[in-house]
């Protein structure tokens, strides 16, 4: 009897210490989270402040006089419309790259051909090559092909990636071979099998890759920076780093440019976060 009582007492004490722990970790995470969000908050509110309010000390936490002037200036006096268009073109091209990655993943996953394993190791090995080493030779190669300062030259170096090929291969290996065999017996060509059987099955990973490809293309910086000499080929990131140099003291304008780049990605990510995070959990550690 008394031991049962004691056990119960111990239990409830454990529960209350558990609840205290939950509260404590909740508070710690909230404070940390506020620090993590602070730069975004400051970026967005500052982008709506007029120049006079930006240089005001002490700073205002919420724009007192709300203005869109910084954003209109980006488009009317800087070439942010051109940068925006170029960035979208790069995103579109990177979707061709995504398709090529999926094709290669399928080739490596479901066919047995001579040299398959050696070639796949070669693909994986490219993941270990740092971009600083390839930066200069790729520039020289593109230059000798006459592709510097062209959109093709900007897009090509980063079009395909070993990591995406690896993910596609892992996922496509789980597609039952009998299914492909049956379709083949019905007279379908290999290309038709890919388009009508494999791609639909791969939809979950394709969707996540599509979002990550968008984010990657939207954020692309290094190759446009190196390959584009002409302002008409700049992307948003390159334009923004240019803006920071030209308007070093105009923080409202800089924040508007940053907001324009960051907010679409934040919205997209928050909307799809469940799928992206789960994809990492599934594919990342296997």
């Amino acid at each position: 009897m008394s031991t049962a009582m004691e056990g119960k007492k111990k239990d409830s004490r454990k529960q209350s210490s558990g609840a205290a722990f939950q509260w404590l970790s909740g508070i710690v995470l909230t404070i940390g989270g506020l620090f993590f969000l602070l730069p975004f908050f400051w970026m967005i509110t500052s982008s709506f402040k007029p120049e006079g309010e930006i240089v005001q000390i002490p700073p205002t936490f919420w724009p007192e006089s709300f203005t869109m002037h910084n954003f209109t200036y980006l488009f009317n006096n800087m070439k942010f419309d051109v940068y925006f268009k170029n960035t979208l073109i790069i995103v579109l091209f990177s979707y061709i790259g995504l398709l090529l990655n999926a094709l290669a993943g399928f080739g490596f996953a479901k066919y047995d051909f001579k040299g398959r394993n050696a070639l796949f190791v070669l693909v994986l090995a490219t993941m270990m090559i740092p971009s600083q080493v390839t930066m200069i030779p790729v520039y020289l190669i593109l230059n000798s092909l006459g592709l510097t300062n062209t959109m093709t030259g900007i897009v090509l170096p980063g079009l395909v990636g070993a990591f995406a090929i690896f993910l596609f291969r892992q996922f496509m290996s789980t597609i039952p071979t009998e299914l492909l065999e049956a379709t083949r017996l019905d007279g379908a060509s290999e290309y038709r099998i890919f388009a009508q059987i494999v791609l639909p099955i791969t939809k979950p990973i394709l969707a996540v890759q599509a979002i990550l490809t968008f984010i990657g293309g939207w954020n692309s910086f290094l190759w446009p920076l190196i390959i584009a000499n002409d302002e008409s080929l700049y992307t948003l990131s390159v334009g923004l780093s240019l803006l920071k140099g030209q308007y070093a003291a105009n923080f409202g304008l800089q924040m508007a440019g940053a907001t324009f780049m960051v907010v679409p990605v934040i919205l997209l990510f928050t909307y799809f976060q469940k799928h992206i995070i789960e994809n990492f959990s599934i594919s990342g550690m296997k």
Partner: peptide
């Protein structure tokens, strides 16, 4: 997931 250039400008 945010752009490094934008983030560096903000910081």
């Amino acid at each position: 997931v945010t752009n490094i250039v934008a983030v560096a400008v903000v910081w």
